[in-house]
């Protein structure tokens, strides 16, 4: 299932590496409202594990889905984070 239709905002963290994808996701989530979905697009393969761990250990957010896809010839890692209501 894809969450693209529910996306409120997209955060581009391509090219950034640990810890910035997590840090920037947190900062972006703070600006969103209840129920909003943030799409995070990263090129850091470690973001798959890191975003998962962050969402697990942080109250008020749920990681809906993660996927790896090819975009413009590079592998990107896409995460869908929802702010809990």
């Amino acid at each position: 299932m894809s969450y693209e239709a529910d996306v409120t905002d997209t955060l581009d963290v391509k090219g950034l590496s640990c810890p910035m994808p997590v840090v920037k996701t947190k900062q972006a989530v703070d600006d969103l409202g209840d129920g909003d979905v943030l799409e995070v697009v990263a090129t850091d393969s470690g973001s798959m594990s890191d975003l998962d761990g962050w969402a697990d250990g942080t109250s008020g957010v749920t990681l809906l889905d993660q996927e790896e896809r090819e975009e413009g010839g590079e592998n990107v890692f896409v995460h869908y984070v929802q702010v809990e209501e």
């Binding site: 810890p19 997590v22 840090v23 947190k26 962050w54 250990g57």
Partner: peptide
């Protein structure tokens, strides 16, 4: 610095 900023992201 990496651990501190990440921990802050955890709240």
């Amino acid at each position: 610095l990496i651990l501190a900023s990440t921990a802050a992201a955890f709240g």
